[in-house]
């Protein structure tokens, strides 16, 4: 009986030690994952007090590279002053039906594409949505994706301060013809 109590006490201490040691890691992991997905039915969602709207979504195919497509998203964010910093540093990420994640292009190709699209790339090609000062902001993002996933794309928007909450938009980009 006495030996059983000692074993139980040791087990309880082990569980407690694991819990105490693992709690910060669990909290850190939660901040990297979108576990609570909200799926708006329109092009607008409110996330942690910030209104996020997809103003434009377009797909551009490249004649020389038929296996890939460019997705152009124009996003507007209007945070309340209290939520101004909640989306700072966030990445709007595209996901396909196979769990693959596409980040906005921030390299030379991305700059060229935004220029072709007529956007001011020096201001627009930031991966983060600029929502830090409480004023509304518009952000252009371009992505390079396989052409066969264009019809199955979703946009995930979240930030370090909003996660585990995130907004998931179903996309239906319209074909874009360059002038």
């Amino acid at each position: 009986m006495k030996r059983g109590l000692w074993i139980l006490a040791a087990l309880a201490m082990t569980v407690a030690a694991c819990g105490i040691a693992g709690w910060p890691d669990w909290q850190d992991w939660r901040r990297t994952q979108v576990l609570n997905e909200s799926r708006p039915e329109s092009d607008m969602a409110v996330l942690s007090g910030t209104e996020i709207r997809i103003r434009r979504q377009a797909v551009l195919t490249l004649p020389d590279l038929p296996d890939r497509a460019v997705i152009w998203l124009q996003l507007a964010v209007s945070p309340t002053p209290a939520a101004a910093a909640s989306l700072g540093g966030c990445n709007p990420v595209l996901r396909d039906g196979r769990g693959r994640r596409f980040l906005p292009l921030s390299d030379e190709l991305g700059l060229k594409l935004l220029k072709i699209l007529g956007r001011d790339w020096a201001i627009s090609c930031a991966q983060s949505l600029r929502a830090a000062d409480g004023a509304g902001a518009v952000s252009d993002q371009v992505y390079l994706v396989p052409v066969d996933v264009v019809d199955a794309l979703e946009l995930e928007v979240s930030g370090p301060e909003t996660r585990p909450d995130g907004a998931i938009f179903t996309l239906s980009p319209q074909p874009l013809t360059l002038p």
Partner: peptide, 9 residues
């Protein structure tokens, strides 16, 4: 060193 690799491309 300046390019992005995209899934499936």
């Amino acid at each position: 060193d300046t390019a992005w690799m995209q899934p499936g491309l």
